[in-house]
């Protein structure tokens, strides 16, 4: 049986479009509201990445930092993140969930305990930003044993040798970082160039689902329709900030935005 993440890709492929992946931070701007956002965007998104906020994020730009600090200030704990996922999974037409964060949070929680909680709450995949290959070999094997997708990252600086090693050790999904940037940077490379690199990865491992992230927004998303999946994160986090500043409801605004993103893909 295919796991839920692979199923989501299969479904979008049938509809002849990339899968839409969103990123929001757990607990932004409150525990309750972040759950509401996940529920409301499920209508449009195929896979939901949920950020575990950390206060020294070395790869995140301003928008996601703002969201993370907001969540931490509101007192989000690791156990709350699992609760949010668990409650979300009880909702109607819930989608696969990928937790994304930094390794220290897992390390302090305990790798085995963390995976157990992931399984219990219904987490389907993990992205650990600062646990690269080959350092992640042991942990990714543990994930596999627990039927959790460990998602390897690739970037424009990844050498061919690493590319081969990483794809070989990867599970069903790979994440390609489109350019040299923290999250939320403007697209500074042409979509063609990005797709060229993307195709290089697909040639080496055609069966793995490869998503492109970083610099994907309402403006740029339609240029990447040939990819297996596309991740939008910072623009959504920014929309939450904007809504809060304008005293509007982030749930409604974010939902509208994800709907628009989806329309651009079909």
């Amino acid at each position: 049986m295919l796991n839920p993440i692979s199923l989501a890709f299969k479904k979008s492929k049938k509809e002849n479009r990339p899968a839409l992946l969103t990123y929001t931070v757990a607990g932004d701007s409150s525990k309750k509201q972040s759950l509401e956002i996940l529920k409301s965007i499920s209508k449009y998104a195929d896979i939901l990445e949920v950020g575990v906020p950390h206060n020294t994020p070395v790869a995140d730009g301003g928008q996601i930092q703002t969201s993370s600090y907001r969540a931490i200030k509101n007192g989000i704990l690791m156990t709350d993140v699992f609760k949010i996922v668990k409650n979300y999974k009880k909702s109607k037409n819930s989608k696969p969930i990928i937790l994304m964060g930094y390794y220290n949070m897992i390390y302090q929680f305990g790798e085995n305990k963390y995976l157990k909680e992931c399984k219990k709450s219904g987490v389907n995949g993990l992205i650990v930003v600062d646990l690269p290959w080959p350092e992640n070999r042991i942990f990714s094997k543990k994930c596999k044993k627990n039927s959790i997708n460990f998602i390897q990252l690739l970037s424009p600086t990844t050498s061919y040798k690493r590319l081969k090693g990483i794809t070989k050790d990867s599970h069903d999904m790979i994440y390609y970082i489109s350019m040299l940037s923290t999250t939320g940077g403007k697209l500074k490379v042409s979509p063609n160039k990005i797709l060229q690199n993307y195709n290089k990865i697909k040639n080496i491992s055609p069966k793995k689902n490869c998503v492109i992230g970083f610099g994907i927004t309402e403006k740029t998303i339609s240029k990447f329709k040939s990819a297996d999946g596309l991740v939008v994160g910072s623009q959504i986090c920014k929309e939450i900030t904007r809504s809060l500043n304008n005293r509007q409801n982030p749930v409604i605004n974010v939902s509208k935005m994800v709907n628009k993103l989806k329309k651009k893909l079909s």
Partner: peptide, 23 residues
């Protein structure tokens, strides 16, 4: 090999993008 002193201090907990420049 992975940059750990005493098997547990140090290492390279960095985003993939930095692996190449560090190497």
């Amino acid at each position: 090999k992975l940059g750990f002193w005493g098997g547990k201090f140090g290492g390279n907990f960095v985003p993939e993008t930095l692996k190449k420049p560090i190497e």
